[in-house]
């Protein structure tokens, strides 16, 4: 998921660039043509996409941590294998997205360093803890469900490599979403203790998940450039409403209660949710969520402790290349 980058304003510096090229570029976008890595693009388009794609990649990688927290404790062998495969998929998404970002001219190392230095963001949802097995079901059901809402429009994003990456990612996310819902269904059909575990997880994740779609449209500082460039096709509130409308019946079907006593269904069938506590969102974004420090510490630890391995691989590759050159010269 994880399109918070879209909510940041981007300075439009097209005025400094060739006006003719910029007009041609916009005409291609308007004609729904895909922009490819070697095509001319405005510097701001490149920057916006680099930021969004890399932030999406960081989110996939940091997102491995809360779910990875349950791989060693999954309740059955089947669940263990499915969870491990899911977290492995997230890693694959991260790799795939870093590769898409690299087509815009930044290396994976630079992008990862920016994240480890705290300069690049990842989705705030992963700054919440996974306390029980039901959290694994809830993440699949709701977090991946929200991600799909955000990402399906991105399959038509104007930038080719990102759009193609999203097609594959959405297929896998949709599988994860069903798997998560099935975990919740199993819990809700189980003992009282299991049902309570499922309800407790929904209570804790519901509001943070709604925040995943970003600030309300009325206060969103995002300029209309992302929309004009066909990177973003729906507003935060439109996507959030779509998600709520899809999710409420799913919760009802398995007998769970959405933790929003003020929720009502309007005449058009839309589920109207109560006001979201944006103070919490801002706090988590500012680094004060329950797990921000733990997540960053875990990523930095893996990076630092793996340094000697990456150095060894590079040293060996260099040695081998030298030997091959020497052999060829003989």
């Amino acid at each position: 998921m994880y399109t918070q980058a879209l909510n940041m304003a981007e300075t439009d510096d097209r005025g400094l660039e060739d006006a003719g090229k910029a007009a041609q570029f916009q005409a291609r976008i308007d004609a729904e043509e895909r922009i490819e890595p070697n095509d001319w693009m405005p510097a701001a388009y490149r920057r916006t996409l680099t930021r969004q794609i890399s932030q999406h990649a960081h989110s996939e990688i940091v997102g491995m941590l809360p779910e990875g927290n349950w791989i060693t404790r999954a309740p059955t062998l089947r669940r263990k294998a499915a969870l491990l495969a899911k977290v492995q998929d997230e890693c694959g998404h991260g790799l795939y997205l870093y590769a898409a970002a690299e087509t815009l001219g930044s290396s994976r190392e630079e992008l990862v360093d920016a994240m480890l230095a705290g300069k690049a963001k990842y989705s705030s949802i992963f700054n919440y803890p996974t306390l029980t097995w039901a959290d694994i079901g809830t993440i699949g059901w709701l977090v991946d469900g929200a991600a799909i809402m955000n990402q399906i429009p991105l399959c038509r994003c104007s930038y080719g490599p990102y759009a193609r990456a999203m097609i594959r990612v959405c297929k896998e996310e949709s599988f994860h979403q069903r798997q998560g819902y099935e975990i919740m269904l199993t819990l809700c059909r189980g003992s009282e203790e299991q049902k309570a575990m499922a309800q407790d997880a929904l209570n804790r994740w519901w509001w943070p998940v709604l925040m995943m779609f970003g600030p309300p449209d009325a206060t969103s500082q995002h300029s209309d450039t992302s929309t004009k460039w066909k990177i973003k096709r729906f507003s935060n509130d439109e996507l959030r409403q779509k998600f709520v409308d899809a999710t409420v019946p799913q919760a009802q079907y398995i007998g769970l209660t959405i933790p929003d006593p003020g929720m009502t269904q309007d005449a058009d069938g839309h589920w109207r949710y109560s006001e979201i506590d944006w103070t919490e969102f801002k706090q988590v974004l500012a680094g004060n969520g329950p797990c921000n420090r733990d997540r960053m510490a875990a990523r930095r630890k893996a990076h630092d402790e793996g340094a000697w391995v990456r150095e060894a691989a590079a040293a060996y590759a260099a040695k081998r290349a030298r030997r091959q050159t020497a052999q060829a010269a003989e």
Binding site: I61, M64, L65, G68, I71, T72, K80, L84, A85, V87, Q88, C91, G92, G94, L95, Y98, A298, K301, A302, E305, G306, A307, V309, R310
Partner: peptide, 18 residues
């Protein structure tokens, strides 16, 4: 599986999980 999310490089997170 204990390595998943903590490996020296993403390629090894993938390989060790596999």
């Amino acid at each position: 599986s204990e390595w998943c999310g903590h490996a020296p490089m993403l390629e090894e997170d993938m390989a060790l999980s596999n």
